[in-house]
Each structure stands twice: as structure tokens, then as C-alpha cells.
């Protein structure tokens, strides 16, 4: 597939912004400015950038709980996201959700989910609605390798294939379900091996190659839009940090970590851009700076935002006061 310079720059910019966001969140968490649990996707940026370049604003997406990058790639408001992580009133969810429950319904982002595996059926329901409403919209469902072992996967994969729902199942295989390596939790070599059981295409691709991610997703999205049903895509990558911030990841083999750091998706694309003479190092530095500036602004916005009023505890439980 041929990519335009503009497309390639877009990929680079998205990855750079996601990297900047996650790096900053890591620092802020360590500094005690962000409460709770945060799960970062450092090293996995190519998947967010490649996947979300394939969909439109009205397409839906179910997320897991390592989803900051995906929110950014789908066009979520970075200021509001950061404010949400701080627990501020201006956050995406008014400070009631936090990192694990980020959502932006206007962008079709059906929410991160703290219950791994619950998102399969919810995303299938969104895909059901896409078709019921006779739109051309499709739904993506992103999940991790650890999550792939939950029972709702089976129910949802089966029904989605049976009904040919317009959905693409996307596994971000980052090597671990918390501390448990894939070899310790998965009976098959690949998550995508399971696709055959549901009569849908399944493919495993290098998740650190943004162009491969894009091409693979594009094909599955087209298939879903055509009404030919779901596909299962598995993007193999590596989680640079621990499961959550504060987890030093001592269960990782340092050699593996070192090898994967060398496969960093951002310089990988950057080197290609320079080699093809599409970009200079200055261009790349500038995109990095744009990402950083967005995060600077987001942190400022979050820090200056008010805390929710205590009365907010009691609102939004129901549509009315019962």
C-alpha cells in the first residue's frame, strides 16, 4: 500500500502525542498529582495511531483500561482527558470516572472499562445498533491478551459472527496479563488462532508497525462495512511499563524488554520518513514538540480546573432524583 506524506505525518503526530501524554501521566502519577490506578500504553502507540486512522467520527469503539492513546487517536479532547485523570470537574466524565472509565459518547467512544472482558458484549451491542439503525457505521472493540481469556469473549464472538455484526475485534497483545506472560495464560500461540472457531478471519500482525496495523485494520473495517461480518486482528506489541504505574514489572526478562525497546514504533516510522526524504529530523522534532505542547496545555487546564462540588456525588445515578 502506498501512503501519502500527509498520512505518514498524521501517524507520526498521533504516536508522538500519545507518547507525550503517557510519559507525562507517568511523571504526574509518580509526583502524586494523579490519584488511583493508571495503566499506560507506552510502546503501544502504533496500534492506536494505525487503527483509528481507519474509522470515522460516527463509528463506535469499545475500549479496555489501557486506553488513553486510543482516546487521543479517535479525537478525544486531551484537556478534558487530563482533567479527568486529575479528578477535576472539567474532566471528560466530570471527575466521576477517572482513567479506567474515560468515555466520550460524542466521539463514539463507549468507554474504557475496569472490568476486563465486559467490553465485548457492550461493543457487540453497539455494532447491533449500527446495523439496526441502518447506518454505515461500524464498531471496533479493543482488548488485551489477558482479557481475551474472559468468557464474554466467547459469547460475543459467536453472536457477532452468527449475525454478521459490523464489528472488528482488535487484540493488543502486549505480552502480559498483568504479570502473567502470554505463554502462561494462553493455550494457543496466538489470540487470533481462535478466529477459526467462529468462522471469521483472524490475523496476527506486528503491532509496532503502524503501517501494517493500518493496512490490516483497513481491510477488516471494509469487510465490516460491507456487511460481511467481524474479523479478529491481533497486534503483537510490548508494554514498556508495569501493568499499572507503580508496578516495576520485575516479572519481565530484561533482555526481552531491551529487545522491544529497540522496536519502538515512533523512531521506526521516523527513520522511514527520513530515508524516503519525506521528513527531516527537524520535522520530526517539531511534531514531538507539538505533542508536548498539547500536553503542557492539558496539564495546565487540569491543574487550573476546579474540583467537583461535593453535591456532584449524588447526581447522575439516575436521570432524576429517585
Amino acid at each position: 500500500m502506498e501512503f501519502s506524506k500527509e498520512q505518514l505525518f498524521d501517524f507520526y503526530q498521533t504516536m508522538a502525542t500519545c507518547r507525550a501524554f503517557e510519559s507525562r501521566v507517568s511523571e504526574l502519577f509518580a509526583a502524586g498529582k494523579i490519584p488511583g490506578f493508571v495503566h499506560l500504553s507506552l510502546g503501544q502507540e502504533a496500534i492506536a495511531a494505525g487503527v483509528f486512522a481507519c474509522v470515522e467520527k460516527d463509528d463506535k469503539c469499545g475500549l479496555h483500561h489501557r486506553s488513553h492513546g486510543e482516546m487521543i487517536a479517535k479525537g478525544g479532547d486531551i484537556n478534558k482527558m487530563m482533567a479527568e485523570l486529575f479528578g477535576k470537574a472539567t474532566g471528560t466524565c466530570k471527575g466521576k470516572g477517572g482513567s479506567m472509565h474515560l468515555a466520550d459518547m460524542d466521539m463514539g467512544l463507549l468507554g474504557a472499562n475496569g472490568i476486563l472482558g465486559a467490553g465485548f458484549a457492550i461493543a457487540a451491542g453497539a455494532a447491533f445498533a449500527c446495523r439496526y439503525n441502518e447506518t454505515n457505521d461500524i464498531t471496533l472493540c479493543l482488548f488485551g491478551d489477558g482479557q481475551s481469556n474472559r468468557g464474554p469473549l466467547h459469547e460475543s464472538f459467536n453472536v457477532a459472527a452468527l449475525w454478521k455484526l459490523p464489528i472488528v475485534w482488535i487484540c493488543e497483545n502486549n505480552g502480559f496479563g498483568l504479570s502473567n506472560p502470554v505463554k502462561g495464560h494462553l493455550a494457543t500461540d496466538n489470540v487470533s488462532d481462535r478466529a477459526a472457531a467462529y468462522g471469521m478471519p483472524g490475523v496476527t500482525v506486528d503491532g509496532n508497525d503502524v503501517l501494517a496495523v493500518y493496512e490490516t485494520t483497513q481491510e477488516a473495517v471494509k469487510r465490516a462495512r460491507r456487511g460481511d461480518g467481524p474479523s479478529l486482528l491481533e497486534f503483537k506489541t510490548w508494554r514498556w511499563h508495569g501493568h499499572f504505574e507503580g508496578d516495576p514489572g520485575l516479572y519481565k526478562d530484561p533482555k526481552d524488554q531491551e529487545e522491544w525497546l529497540k522496536k519502538d514504533p515512533i523512531p521506526r516510522l521516523g527513520n522511514m520518513l527520513i530515508k524516503k526524504k519525506y521528513a527531516t529530523q527537524e520535522d520530526l522534532d517539531q511534531m514531538k514538540a507539538i505533542g508536548e505542547a498539547k500536553i503542557d496545555a492539558a496539564v495546565k487546564f487540569a491543574e487550573e480546573s476546579p474540583w467537583p462540588d461535593a453535591s456532584e456525588l449524588y447526581t447522575d445515578v439516575y436521570d432524576r432524583q429517585l
Binding site: 458484549a121 457487540a124 451491542g125 453497539a126 447491533f128 459469547e155 460475543s156 459467536n158
Partner: peptide, 26 residues
């Protein structure tokens, strides 16, 4: 069949899909 839908024996799907479809306007 569009309005009255038989599902497999899949309670997680039945209830979970309703969360998704209702969040999307159904």
C-alpha cells in the same frame, strides 16, 4: 426478526449487548 430477536444461550451477551445498544440510542 428485526424487532424480536432470538439469541443463543449467552446471558453475558444478552445483557451486555443491551448496555451497548441502549447507549447507542436503541
Amino acid at each position: 426478526p428485526k424487532r424480536i430477536v432470538d439469541t443463543p444461550i449467552s446471558e453475558n451477551f444478552i445483557v451486555g449487548h443491551a448496555v451497548g445498544s441502549s447507549a447507542c440510542g436503541l
